[in-house]
């Protein structure tokens, strides 16, 4: 029996298969104790970065708009999720369920931020859009840095700019402005990361292969032509942008609940750029590429640990060289010829 599948379906199934195999391999290696403790500690962050890269790829690769403030959405999700988890500790005692609820809350908050930011941002084009996303990322960072949240018997208390909270009996601070959230109960697991990655993939593939997804890609390829056949620009741009923000929020929640402490300064411009690097290295619009690039580049600094002081320098050089090599016409021409010859042999 020969199954006839379209090229996109085959690539999608390949992506699912790679993620599942990677999960099974790493899970069994980790339970067999074959992984070093640093790598084991990296499993949850890797999943989080993979989902962040996937979500940004939806904006950059599928929608075709450069976003330099993706860490802002991650940050909203991370803090909303971590606060929710801390507030719900007694209400939902089961960690897995609490993690799921926190992720949903993180995603909802990030989606709201996505709507608020998307309305002004998506009216702009090109580099102006990029700079405004950068600006929003910085605004989110500096707002969260000045936010204080405490909890006591009566519920959550908020305060802005300075800590003016007077908490009742048994009250405690959750979010401490620039100090972030200390003492997080780490409930994120590798399995949860795997499930989130799968959900993100399912959401993205279904969106991309739907009527809406084709509309979004038509906007990317030629906005004016797409508009002239009656595609609603704002609606489809918002759809992609908000989905991307929500997934980034869930990833942020996964990340923060896998750490002991998170600081608002963690999600700055450099983090946005880091995620963008994953997307560009993996290939715009290629989800499998984003997954591999995010995983590889998260592990790379750990592997380079033996270079100690030089590791970030090596990282920078690797980044520049990869960009130079992948965009070199001679080298890409050579590979193109090589693959064409191989295909010619097959037939």
């Amino acid at each position: 029996m020969k199954l006839k599948l379209s090229k996109t379906t085959r690539i999608n199934f390949l992506t699912y298969a790679v993620v599942i195999v990677a999960f099974v391999v790493f899970q069994s290696l980790s339970s067999a104790g074959a992984l070093s403790s640093t790598l084991k500690g990296q499993l949850v962050p890797i999943c989080a970065y993979v989902v962040m890269a996937l979500s940004l790829n939806l904006t950059v690769g599928v929608l075709g708009e450069l976003s330099l403030g993706h860490a802002g959405f991650v940050s909203v999700g991370a803090f909303a999720g971590a606060v929710a988890s801390a507030a719900l500790t007694t209400v939902i005692p089961i960690p897995a369920l609490r993690l799921a609820v926190s992720m949903v809350i993180g995603a909802i908050f990030a989606a709201i931020a996505g709507v608020l930011i998307g309305i002004p941002v998506l009216r702009l084009r090109g580099d102006y859009l990029a700079i405004v996303t950068l600006a929003f990322g910085e605004i989110i960072k500096s707002l969260i840095t000045n936010f204080y949240i405490g909890i006591d018997g009566e519920g959550l208390h908020f305060s802005f700019l300075s800590n003016k909270l007077s908490l009742g009996e048994g009250g405690r601070m959750i979010l401490n402005g620039p100090m972030g959230i200390p003492g997080i109960t780490r409930i994120s697991t590798f399995a949860a990361g795997f499930i989130l990655t799968m959900i993100a993939l399912i959401v993205i593939f279904n969106l991309v292969n739907s009527r809406s997804g084709r509309a979004i890609m038509a906007l990317r390829d030629n906005r004016i032509a797409a508009e002239s056949v009656g595609i609603n620009v704002t609606k489809y741009k918002m759809m992609a942008f908000v989905t991307s923000a929500a997934l980034a929020g869930a990833a942020g929640c996964l990340f923060s609940l896998g750490q002991n402490t998170i600081l608002p300064s963690k999600f700055d411009f450099n983090t946005s750029i880091l995620i963008l690097v994953f997307v560009v290295l993996g290939g715009q619009g290629r989800m499998l590429g984003s997954i591999i690039a995010a995983a590889a580049l998260t592990i790379l600094p750990e592997v380079l640990r033996e270079f100690a002081d030089y590791r970030m320098l090596v990282y920078a050089i690797v980044l520049i060289l990869v960009m130079l090599i992948t965009n070199n016409p001679t080298i890409s021409g050579f590979f193109a010829r090589l693959f064409r010859r191989q295909k010619g042999d097959e037939t």
Partner: peptide, 28 residues
Amino acid sequence: KPLRQAPSLAVLITAIGMSYFLQNAAQL
């Protein structure tokens, strides 16, 4: 210069790589 014809995102990432490089070289 080698990226004159490359897509603008590739140039952007190279510029960011250069920025990391200068910062870390200065740190060393």
